[in-house]
Amino acid sequence: MEVVRNKYGSKRVQKLLGISDDVDALFYAAILHRFYDIMTDKYASYVAIRAMLVFDTMEKFRMYDHVLYYALDIARDHNALFLSNDPSGNFVVQHVLTLYDSRCTSNVAVSLLGHCVDLSFQKYGSYIVEKLLEAEESMAVVVVELLECEGGRLTRLARNEFGSFVVVKALRVTQEMDRIDMFWDLVQKLMPLRHLLVRSHGSNIAKILESCSI
């Protein structure tokens, strides 16, 4: 733990993973022994994430079991934002959200408060934001952030390859959850951008807006 909690020590251990079965077995046992401590540390968690990429299937599933076991505790930790921004670590947060535990989901939402738009621009981050939109406990957190998003930034998000899916999801779930007030607030916010979305990744948003203006 002393080594992997250090930025440079963590990088060196990551390079050792996947080189030999004996070395992997040593680190596998060490990671499982201090799993929660490792997963909630800024630099040590990179070692666990790297391990999940290089270990054999059986070891990976054992680690996934540990993720689920500690899911609530990991969700409460501020590390949710760090993991959400990592192309491999985000799966931990996704696992937590698919437990559909209201308290757990709320904790993740609080940890990501103010970062949902930034995450929506990223491939893996957008998956997490979409999952937050699916839950009543966290949907409003994302929608409010979209509503507070400045015009130019909202345009870029709505035209973005990944962000456009988040905006479409927000429009759909506000209707499905009977939050018509939020739905129309979003429509009103996006309507001036409609002409900019037609020939872009935001074409599906434009179609929804068009149906609202008829």
Rank of each mutant, 00 (worst) to 15 (best):
D77A: 11
A80H: 05
N85L: 02
F55P: 00
Y46C: 01
N90G: 13
G89H: 05
L68C: 08
M52H: 04
A51R: 06
R62L: 04
N90D: 15
N79Y: 14
D65M: 05
N85E: 13
M58Y: 08
A75E: 10
Y69V: 06
E59P: 00
H78R: 15
A51E: 07
V47R: 12
V47P: 07
N79R: 15
I49E: 05
A51N: 10
L83P: 05
G89D: 06
L81I: 00
D65P: 09
N90M: 10
M52D: 03
A51H: 08
K60D: 04
R76W: 08
E59S: 14
L53C: 00
E59F: 05
M58L: 02
S88D: 07
G89V: 03
M58C: 02
S84M: 04
S84G: 03
I74N: 11
A48H: 11
M63E: 05
D86K: 08
S88M: 01
L68V: 13
S84V: 06
F82K: 12
G89M: 02
F55L: 04
N90I: 08
L68G: 09
N79C: 08
N85F: 05
T57M: 04
T57V: 03
R76L: 03
R62F: 08
D86F: 03
G89I: 04
M52I: 00
D65T: 12
Y69F: 12
F82A: 10
V54S: 02
N79V: 15
F61V: 05
Y46W: 13
R62D: 14
R76K: 14
F61P: 00
D56N: 10
L68Q: 13
A75F: 10
V47E: 14
D65I: 03
A80W: 04
L53N: 09
A71T: 14
K60G: 00
S84N: 09
L68I: 11
M63Q: 07
L81F: 08
F82N: 13
L83F: 07
L83E: 09
F82P: 03
M63L: 13
Y64M: 01
A48E: 11
S88A: 03
H78E: 15
V47Y: 12
F61L: 05
P87T: 11
F61I: 05
R76E: 13
Y70T: 10
V54N: 07
Y69G: 00
Y64T: 04
M63F: 06
Y64Q: 05
A51L: 05
T57C: 02
F82H: 14
A80G: 01
I74W: 13
H66Q: 15
S88K: 05
S84A: 10
